[in-house]
Design a protein around this nucleic acid. Structure first.
Lengths: 179, 179
DNA sequence: GCTTCGGTGTTGACATGACAACATCACCCG
DNA sequence: CGGGTGATGTTGTCATGTCAACACCGAAGC
């Protein structure tokens, strides 16, 4: 539970009377992982979305679906939504966009006319491969200066953060007797 | 330039004929920092936004502005926008929301009626302190299991990613003669 | 058989934030 | 002085993604 060996001071800017510090304690941007995480993610996804749109005419969502259908061909809407962790509505719209561009097709599965199994067309697979080359190149640029050891550490940390997110909100951090 | 000592295989799932792997090489979700980064950030910001809204009636944007104005009282719209790295339009709207709730006030600065210097009111500072306690608690939960050494490594990695983002898109990874 | 229940996919309404256009003002240079 | 230039802040418009509501189907339960 509360294995919080981390002190609040690690994340705060405390007033010390100088001009550099505020008059009241507040969050440090540079030392708070949550701030850095959202900064980095927002700027990256924004730039990536523009890039995908300019080069290939599809959004970041559609690219994720290309990867998803390459990874697990025959996925349904709800399965894809659960795997990527986004809303099924967005997945449904994305798949229909891909279908409209003939990048993906749906084949009925069983007698249930809704449960469709989706897969990429040949042109969808070709586009996937083209974008994949860009994505890999860009990711390598993003990781420029990282050694393989550092890379593994980073991915490990991010995975641990991901696992912790669920528990960070369940109880509600208010519980602790502040105020 | 290409100090990319990192192999593509680090980020890919390659087909090996088994059932676990796809028939075509594609991005690994668990080993790609960009994927993990956006996953973690999206899920965290979404949950945090809900939390802020439910508990305090303001969005994540407004909370960031509370921190910003605590950090540097007297900031202008454009200065805050540059510091946080988001659009000045969003900052302008957020500040007016705060003003409407009497959490922040603007005082004219010089004769330019547009350049206003913003600061928090007493109730704004009080709300900042209340939310700060929650944010710290939640961040500690998110970092549950991290040692102080690991924390420093993580923040350092994220800062390096942030610095690399600009260069990752400038030239355009497409450099090779498409377009 | 009929009904209830949970899961599925689709659609509409909404919030968020980015981009572009605009009015306004300070500044500078001719 | 007066026009150009750039910065500032505001507003409109759009894309993205979430939530809520709905229609639809399968599987049990009586």
């Amino acid at each position: 539970m509360t294995d919080s060996d981390l002190s609040d001071d690690l994340f705060l800017i405390l007033p010390d009377g100088s001009d550099e510090t505020p008059e009241r304690a507040t969050l440090s941007f540079r030392r708070s992982p949550t701030v850095l995480l959202t900064f980095a993610s927002n700027r990256f996804t924004r730039a990536a979305a523009r890039d995908y749109q300019d080069r290939f005419g599809l959004g970041a969502m559609d690219w994720r679906m290309l990867v998803m259908l390459t990874r697990e061909p025959g996925s349904t809407v709800s399965h894809a939504a659960r795997t990527i962790g986004i809303d099924k509505a967005a997945v449904s719209r994305s798949l229909h966009r891909l279908q409209q561009r003939q990048l993906a097709t749906a084949t009925a599965e069983g007698r249930d006319s809704r449960r469709k199994s989706w897969q990429l067309t040949d042109s969808g697979r070709a586009l996937h491969d083209r974008i994949l080359a860009h994505a890999l190149e860009r990711q390598k640029r993003l990781l420029s200066g990282f050694s393989e050891t550092e890379l593994r550490a980073l991915t490990g940390y991010l995975a641990r953060l991901l696992e912790n997110i669920d528990g960070a909100f369940d109880d509600g951090p208010a519980g602790a007797g502040d105020q």
